[in-house]
């Protein structure tokens, strides 16, 4: 008999026991491990996908930021260029204005310097010339310059009053009560008497003359009659000489020559205070 029923039953029981043992020690642990691994893999893949999505989003955000940055940078650069250009122009304008101001100041200083130099030159010339002239008059003509000037002044005054449409004639037409006489030098009593005589003749009346010394006049006589000044000085002559010196274009003729030939000293009438 090939089949032993006891063995069949025993084998069936053995099989059931083996089934339980393998279930307990093999299938369950292995299947659990597989499930856990699959879950882990799924989780990992999901994490990876999530990270990929995040990375993609971040990449897009970064690209957008980059683009914005580039655009802003271009805008900033353009703006900075404009501002730099404007600032440069402003600075240039400011510097130009500063240079103009400095140039103007320099010109003004130069003009002042010229003025001062001219004044100083004139003053020296006046002093020197008059010192020489006085010496010459004293040594050669045997008279003083002042005496001679008073004579000439009287002569000229008379000539002036005789001219009917002259400016001086209008001033002298009405006899003043008092006349102030300014001179650069102290007039001697003789000279004062001579001048008073001349004035009386000119006004055809007695004139109360007050004499006053004014060294700034250098040479000449100045009458102050009712607010009008009658000037017989070389001041105007010298003022003209000064302008000829400092305003003379290069290559022009000498001011002395011009003064000699073109200009003639004459009596001038001015408002007092001028």
């Amino acid at each position: 008999m090939l089949i032993d029923w006891f063995t069949v039953i025993a084998q069936a029981i053995n099989f059931l026991v083996l089934m339980w043992l393998l279930k307990r020690f093999l299938y369950k642990p292995v299947l659990n491990a597989i499930d856990a691994r699959e879950a882990h893999i799924v989780e990992t893949v999901q994490d990876a996908e999530e990270q990929k999505r995040t990375a993609e989003a971040e990449r897009e955000a970064f690209a957008k930021k980059n683009e914005d940055f580039d655009r802003q940078r271009a805008e900033f650069i353009a703006q900075a260029r404009e501002e730099a250009k404007a600032a440069g122009e402003r600075l240039l304008e400011k510097e130009r204005a500063t240079v103009d101001a400095i140039r103007e100041k320099w010109r003004s200083a130069l003009a002042d310097e010229q003025e001062r130099f001219g004044d100083e030159t004139l003053r020296r010339i006046q002093n020197e010339v008059f010192a020489i002239v006085r010496q010459v008059f004293r040594d050669l003509v045997d008279t003083s310059l002042e005496t001679r000037m008073i004579e000439v002044f009287g002569h000229r005054l008379r000539l002036a009053t005789e001219a009917p449409d002259g400016k001086l004639a209008g001033v002298l037409r009405t006899a003043p009560k008092a006349v102030r006489v300014k001179s650069a030098f102290a007039l001697t009593p003789t000279q004062q008497a001579s001048l008073r005589q001349t004035l009386s003749e000119a006004f055809t009346a007695d004139v109360d003359a007050h004499f006053q010394t004014e060294p700034d006049l250098i040479g000449g006589i100045e009458l102050i009659i009712d607010g009008q000044r009658v000037v017989w000085t070389v001041e105007d002559y010298l003022a003209k000489l000064k302008s000829d010196i400092f305003e003379l274009p290069s290559g022009s003729s000498s001011p002395w020559k011009k003064g000699k030939t073109g200009k003639e000293t004459s009596i001038h009438v001015k408002q007092e205070g001028v």
């Binding site: 090939l2 089949i3 032993d4 029923w5 063995t7 069949v8 039953i9 084998q11 099989f15």
Partner: peptide
């Protein structure tokens, strides 16, 4: 064994 195969 036929017993084993029979049991299975």
């Amino acid at each position: 064994s036929l017993s084993t195969t029979a049991a299975l």
